[in-house]
Design a protein around this nucleic acid. Sequence first.
DNA 1: CCAGAGTACCTGATACCGTCGGTTTCGTGA
DNA 2: TCACGAAACCGACGGTATCAGGTACTCTGG
Lengths: 249, 249
Amino acid sequence: MSQITPAPTPLSEHRHPDPLQPDGRSTRWADHREARRAELVRIARRVVHHQGPDVSMDEIASAAGTSKSIVYRYFADKTGLQIALADAVLLQMQGALEGALRSADTPRDGLRSMVAVYLEMVESSPHVYSFVTRQPESGAPMVHFLDAVTAMVATPFVRALTESGVTVPGPTSALAQSWAAGAVGFVRGAGEWWMAQQGEPGTPSRDELTRQIASWLWVGPVGFLTRERGSPDRPDPSDRQPPATQETP
Amino acid sequence: MSQITPAPTPLSEHRHPDPLQPDGRSTRWADHREARRAELVRIARRVVHHQGPDVSMDEIASAAGTSKSIVYRYFADKTGLQIALADAVLLQMQGALEGALRSADTPRDGLRSMVAVYLEMVESSPHVYSFVTRQPESGAPMVHFLDAVTAMVATPFVRALTESGVTVPGPTSALAQSWAAGAVGFVRGAGEWWMAQQGEPGTPSRDELTRQIASWLWVGPVGFLTRERGSPDRPDPSDRQPPATQETP
DNA sequence: CCAGAGTACCTGATACCGTCGGTTTCGTGA
DNA sequence: TCACGAAACCGACGGTATCAGGTACTCTGG
């Protein structure tokens, strides 16, 4: 996982093995298959976008002008389709991210760009987002999409860690990965809260939320709030109040 | 296999026939119902714990020595059962949290306690955790469990905000809520990463992860890492470190 | 005041339905 | 001949309807 690449060739468990071997006449089908598969993903994405994350395989198939058996020829199961769709989305996000990162010179700006790209994706198609982040029934413990995003975040982080010569106990990759997983979770949690809030008064704009999240991830609420009050960078750990008891659920 | 009526609590002579109440024949079952409902939740929790988050309603019913119709008499649907189970778990977490908060004097310790309680829950029963955090098919946009935890986090946070006299643009509640949603997401993301990592070398212990997460949430990675290197509390925003740009895939 | 009939409300099993993910069968066209 | 693709099919599951008790309350007549 050296690259930022979202692992576009994921677990082959959910991907159908090519039944045809490189036997000359099969190569002709290879690219056809690939093209058709991509087309199916495209259609599935459109259908999910419009119909919601609960579309059935039948609906997807008929939207593609065909029947389930075809879909199942290209994807092992629904999870396989979900993964393929996630890869398509990830590829697109990566493109947007590269553009944004070109004009980001501080690492913090980089973080902000990542948050921005994520939130843009969520906003641009909540249904697709929901579909892609849904954990499969009795399947892998990790959702491919979130896993890939985590890798995308962890990779530069771990490099920055090693390059900056920070020495921490234990393997740095575990440190970076756990932070990345947490950070992605933060954006996910805040983003989904934000989407659920839409329409309520006081809901921040996407850009506001982006900056907010980046701030919080970077310096924590203390750093952010103290900055708000004037003193830019003194966390003041012996702060007052906070986490106390609360009412019943 | 129970009798038709286990113990309907005959409330005969100790309760006057209230003219406002429609009929004593209906009220008779009230507390029995409540008790049975709780019992069903308990059993469901045990079954989910052992069988995994994909148990069917039939399985739960038969584990309770009855059939689906009974379960559906007490819970509108599977989501209703999920919510009830979540409430039971939340109640327990709240108990643990109150105990922990009693010995936490700084807000940061409070945060650490919350993280600890969450991770303890995840570790104590991954299956129940998974069941309770699963988003229902085509249902509410928010998972009840996560929503409730977010509220538990946001409440003290918003109080701390107002009491400390921090003035921020817009309603403070939106600010607190978005942070809470993000923080819960952070713990969720890191916690699930951690559970998926179990067995790998370099995986932190629960306690290590707890402190790590609390640190990151409180001061961000910059604050944490600079502290690691010696200077306890100087984030130094113009820092080197993390999320930088990276190359193309 | 009381005995018993009638009633309101409940329990609970079983059969059933619609949907959906996934598989198998079989016709057909190159 | 043979792969492709449509359509029938299958099993599982969430959820509902039906029906058969059963118990404690209420009502009525003596």
